[in-house]
Design a protein around this nucleic acid. Structure first.
Lengths: 230, 230
DNA sequence: ATAATAGTGTCTTTTAGACAATATCAC
DNA sequence: GTGATATTGTCTAAAAGACACTATTAT
């Protein structure tokens, strides 16, 4: 780490944000259409420059808000990787820090103030070849991270609105893991985790069957023992 | 991601490598003594600049070899985080990519060709306050990553020489997790994982009890179901 | 009433853990 | 032999999973 501060190589640093959410029980990701070369017309992850005096996480939150309008409520954001192959950007050496954002179901997709257009795409329908740069890998890694995060951490609740039912939480697990879970066993399992779910005492009316109880996310951040992926 | 390549903010990019190994059944980390300001005289993680045309992982491997001489055999290297707070380096904006390296027990500590001095320190005796920059956090995160990696991945074998006994593998788990494990149950558990251990048929002689069988690391990289940390 | 979903209970299978029993060495 | 460690076996406790059963709504 001994170096001359005036002789460092020229790097640009960006953040790329993989915004995950659930729409109709399917995992979706926010993509923006590139308006300029290179990769003009291709889909890309929202992202951009880190400013000189800006924290990485702050930059991720800012880009998320600017490009997708999903700044409120403050989304869950977690760093999951760095991408720095020489040549990943044809113009210059760029190091990109990958963040996953998990946001509650959005009714009306988006409409960012910054980028031209943004889309919500079902992750299993995204054509990897249509993604700019190495965003195909970044997306893969983010989904991988989300899958394993559901095991030990309580982020699944971040896909849900402030108050939600156990069935909605189960939908999150089913969508992210791509499996079906037994409703009864799932219910007992999550109820057993201290601080995962906080009952509100109220119920959701209007559905077809017995009205389910509404829960809030509890204070726990860790699920112990971890949920097992079938 | 639309930008003018000539107007990017000036960033320096470094890699910091957390080299973990086992000495006498205790987890150790390689530290180097800083010879220049800032933090002159403090301990730091080996690391340095990423070159303009160099891959991040390549840079990590190169710094590891240069500063500690631990280039052969090619060590296990995994990226685990990025550290980019403005102000983490008092001289300029530096983004550092953290890598964990896991190397087999080294008999004679090191003697790098590059850095002044390098030490092998037991991780539980490292005084966090004595570490330069934010290396205290980087070290913590690396150990955390190692702990969880032992659950699902087979990296534990990377702490061992080419041929090793089940007791040596158990020592790895005990040292990294900081727990004691039942020898009998551990033996059965790891033997049950397909591709984790490959018997050599030979045994280690000269010890005090029944000569243990020698194993090689098998082809599996994933432990399914994961090992459970007590 | 019927269909649908929520939530509980019961039983079976699997897995983890405690710990005894046996094996094979150095001394 | 004794003491040490490796390895296997046995039993028990805990967890996961299949699935039946009850609860409560809309229609």
């Amino acid at each position: 780490m001994d170096y001359d501060p005036h002789a460092f190589p020229p790097f640009a640093v960006t953040v790329d944000v993989v915004v995950l959410t659930l729409v109709d029980g399917r995992l979706h990701v926010v993509l923006v259409k590139r308006g300029v070369e290179p990769f003009k017309g291709d889909w890309a992850l929202p992202g951009g420059f880190v400013r000189v005096d800006e924290d990485l996480a702050t930059a991720a939150a800012r880009e998320l808000a600017e490009e997708t309008g999903l700044g409120h409520p403050a989304p869950f954001l977690e760093q999951f990787g760095v991408y720095g192959d020489p040549g990943r950007d044809p113009r210059m050496r760029v190091i990109s820090v990958g963040y996953v954002a998990v946001v509650p179901r959005v009714e009306e997709p988006q409409g960012g103030s910054d980028a031209a257009e943004s889309f919500l795409a079902p992750v299993d329908e995204v054509d990897p070849a249509s993604l700019a740069f190495d965003h195909r890998h970044i997306l893969e890694d983010a989904i991988d991270r989300a899958r394993t995060a559901l095991e030990r951490s309580t982020i699944a609740t971040r896909f849900c609105p402030a108050e939600f039912t156990v069935a909605e939480l189960r939908e999150v697990y089913e969508a992210v893991w791509g499996v079906e879970l037994d409703p009864g066993n799932f219910q007992k399992r999550v109820a057993d985790v201290d601080g995962f779910l906080e009952p509100t005492g109220r119920h959701r009316r209007g559905g077809r069957g017995r009205p389910p109880e509404l829960y809030r996310a509890g204070p726990a951040s860790v699920i112990e023992p971890p949920m097992r992926r079938p």
